[in-house]
Design a protein around this nucleic acid. Sequence first.
DNA 1: GGGACGGTTCGGCGACCGCCGAAATGTCGC
DNA 2: GCGACATTTCGGCGGTCGCCGAACCGTCCC
Lengths: 222, 222
Amino acid sequence: MLADPTRATFCVALLDGRAWTANELATLAGVSAPTATGHLHRLVDSGLCTERRQGRHRYVQLADPETAALIESLAGHSQAPAVAPSGLRASTASAALARGRTCYDHLAGRLGVAVTDAMTDRGILDRTAGFALSDKGRDWMTTALGVDTAAWSRGRRPAVRECLDWTERRSHLAGLAGAAVCARFLESDWVRRIGSTRAVRLTDTGAEALGELLALDTATLR
Amino acid sequence: MLADPTRATFCVALLDGRAWTANELATLAGVSAPTATGHLHRLVDSGLCTERRQGRHRYVQLADPETAALIESLAGHSQAPAVAPSGLRASTASAALARGRTCYDHLAGRLGVAVTDAMTDRGILDRTAGFALSDKGRDWMTTALGVDTAAWSRGRRPAVRECLDWTERRSHLAGLAGAAVCARFLESDWVRRIGSTRAVRLTDTGAEALGELLALDTATLR
DNA sequence: GGGACGGTTCGGCGACCGCCGAAATGTCGC
DNA sequence: GCGACATTTCGGCGGTCGCCGAACCGTCCC
């Protein structure tokens, strides 16, 4: 199912966690609308995606975080692209993605890895044996981010998960904690989406906040 | 690469962590030798597998634990097999696999999940936030298993990793800790391979040892 | 109502790719 | 050297599947 280049392109696009319409995906992948329709039917039938009909539009998105994690891990294992993007526009877009982006519902790129590293340095994450939130980390989630971590023990989704970043080739934070951090950062406008892409950029207030909360040097992230 | 049924069968077989010859894999997957050769070339070229020539034999195995983890996660996401294995022999073999098996280099099946659960109950694993080894767990590794956990901080492979068990549909322990547990159990003859398959069974001494070390009730695992 | 537009169904074309048999190569054991 | 055996190369067959154009169905907006 994921082996077809067109469907793979769809899924990577859907990794941004948003719902796309059939035509958007068709244009992105460079195929005709009928082709895209057929692929989307198969993705929905196989349970990888879900759809929401709304008027004459059909919005498709990944079925759940587990599916997103699977696609991430496949993307992480695929070799680096053979050719670098050419052209000013493409390379600007690709640079923006490398700097910071969302990966389903958490942060990735240099920004995502930097935040994860800073959380480790500050003792919020414990990476000496596995990838876990320390006691201090649980406090930090509540006081700094206003997140109720007690609710995390219920449910199937892991609280903390490691996700291989395919541009940085290093791990960043995923799971419920990663999603909470990303959501809070977007809500507080510390991080803002660039247009309607997956790419995000750090705002001025965001840079300041991350300096205070995580002693993070944001100079290379802007 | 992994989408072809024959190659997928090869990779799942290789999940036992051992090296297989081309003919063994051909027989298992029900294809001719030339077909198997072609597939193995592609798997090696793509970096998923490595080969070791030895006389007139060609031994193939998975390239590294990361690759094994990828295949595991794909296997975990594939739907349950539509048809139950039929025939006495097939169902005995499948029951043995469900009871206990190796999953690349760690334990899986009911046995793997039970050991993981027991380690959690005894406070060796901390699953309240992520999947990590507690301080107590590090001591246990050293005293009970004679494993030096200090060496784990170096290297890319995570010390503790969660692996979705495709028969139990629950997580079991993987990563360096999972590999250490499995290796130690096999060395001590607490667990023994059934023939040359991935399936393993608990020995009498093993049942006793697990009762002492983990307060594990092994009645349903035999 | 009528045009615009998103999405869908149908039919058919073409390419890719997995498969095998036959024959070749290389290794082992005697 | 010679037969047995594991593996490989080659050539060719066949099915699957992705793709598109054309025509069709709904919904939205004027």
